[in-house]
Design a protein around this nucleic acid. Structure first.
Lengths: 290, 290
DNA sequence: GTTCCGCATGAATCGATAG
DNA sequence: ACTATCGATTCATGCGGAA
């Protein structure tokens, strides 16, 4: 397909017209926040944000595969002492346009610097809003499992009577469990809060989000060789994550300088990739042994 | 004032009519989430939730002081594979009714119930939505500072054990005086993510939220002897927190059994209070020396 | 008094089946 | 077809008794 594995200069609304229907597996993006990056993006006013966004969202809908997923990383800015409502209005408008609001993940920032204003503290979280075209969508939950907590070592070796049978929850939810089912399990499923550092470890460019963020969703919603689209690619983090995980990418940005930055970074990634892969293999082995 | 330091049986919409305008410093509440506790409460349908809530919110507005704060702990449930929109619609309706949506805190749950479904993971966070009547509101940011050490080692910005004990030490003693010992020394300001465990050990009553949750907001938005209102008091956690921190409380609930439960628990708290305070005094001295 | 360790507990959602 | 009920699924924490 045209444009695959490229960073394209232009407005995604126009560029995407060259992309066929139902061809993208995952859209992951962090668009310019309203009025926030005025100098680079020309600054969309908060009150106009939803109207600015929706035509683009319509193109996203068209190019996304029926079982694909759209993850939107966004945060509302404070305007005149209030959280502006453009994000929640966006959710309502997206639903009117046919999208399903299937989930809202939270990125809980791990290492942000403390800060305070007269009437508020540092905003330490962002929304990762999940939209889908259908109730059934592709999700590879095993790809993001995490090591089980230390509690398991002791407890699973020494099952109590209640642990051996099904134990019903007392709140009447009908939610019960049987601990003995978990013997021998090393990994557990995560939840919808991502506790990640705001790491901008790379010295040459400032990414809006850590690479672990797109990586996590790419692993969760795509398989190798699937196509990942970021229509506001910025410094290229989503594309780097896609390459590292063996997925195809398509990045778009209206700013020449970001397109160049992304391309430089991708070149760098592709040169380094074999080395990285090798390290990863070692790392993985270590981890299993330990 | 009528009803101060009591738990009242009834619908808050009616009960509050006996309360004068501009008399409450903080409203902290966790109403029954739509259709979620139908075994105990009636179970409001998600689609009807906003209409059910707004008349009550109007009474909250009337009784809240101009510089007071309303903290609403709520979470949307999944209906037919989607997050229901009643919470975000509620925010928009609250603004139409004159409230300002000043902030949204996140409660990141430390130990939520396990669970995974074909298309989603466990929902591990809840919203704590802050509403105000005015852009200028009372906020005592120094009262919720956290040890810098905790922040540094990623334990993050919430109530560590030592911090928790220190909180209680303020009971009955000159709040502002004590806290000033700590300001500027080893403490930093927190942020808007609260990383707390769900309370799980009390056999007699199951609180929907840990006491640290109301405690944190009571410290942040009130001073000793201020009045804290919880119009859906449930098992009385908000009132217990208010007493422990030397504030007045007013609790309301439609369920006889919850009113009784709250009262029992409060009695227990009041009996224990001098003992707690005494222990804490000792603890505090130790800590300052160290 | 302090540490250790056992163990009860906590705002759910989906798919299948029955009414 | 549409609603109601039921079974299956999944961890980590902090209390409290014991050592």
């Amino acid at each position: 397909m045209k444009f695959v594995n490229q960073i394209i200069l232009g407005d995604c609304e126009q560029v995407l017209k060259s992309i066929p229907n139902d061809s993208v597996d995952l859209i992951f993006t962090s668009p310019p926040y309203a009025d926030q990056r005025k100098t680079t993006y020309g600054g969309v006013k908060p009150d106009e944000y939803v109207d600015w966004f929706m035509p683009k969202a319509q193109e996203f809908y068209r190019v996304l595969k029926p079982k694909g997923t759209f993850i939107l990383n966004i945060k509302e800015r404070v305007v005149n002492g209030e959280r502006h409502t453009y994000v929640i209005e966006l959710i309502l408008r997206m639903r009117e346009a046919g999208w399903l609001w299937t989930e809202e993940f939270i990125w809980h920032k791990k290492n942000s610097y403390p800060g305070k204003w007269p009437n508020r503290f540092r905003d330490n979280w962002e929304r990762l809003i999940q939209f889908n075209k259908n109730r059934k969508f592709k999700m590879y939950q095993e790809a993001v499992m995490v090591p089980v907590g230390d509690w398991a070592k002791d407890r699973l070796n020494n099952l109590s009577d209640t642990d051996k049978k099904r134990d019903e929850s007392k709140v009447g939810s009908g939610f019960g469990k049987n601990i003995s089912n978990w013997v021998g399990r090393n990994e557990v499923y995560p939840n919808n809060v991502l506790y990640l550092a705001t790491e901008c470890s790379n010295r040459n460019h400032s990414a809006a989000f850590p690479i672990d963020l797109p990586s996590w969703f790419i692993k969760l919603f795509t398989q190798p060789n699937d196509l990942v689209l970021d229509p506001f690619i910025g410094s290229g983090t989503t594309a780097v994550a896609a390459i590292q995980l063996g997925r195809k990418y398509l990045g778009i940005d209206t700013e020449q300088e970001y397109v160049e930055l992304s391309n430089e970074r991708l070149l760098d990634t592709q040169i380094r990739l074999p080395i990285i892969a090798e390290n990863q293999e070692e790392y993985k082995t270590d981890n299993i042994e330990g």
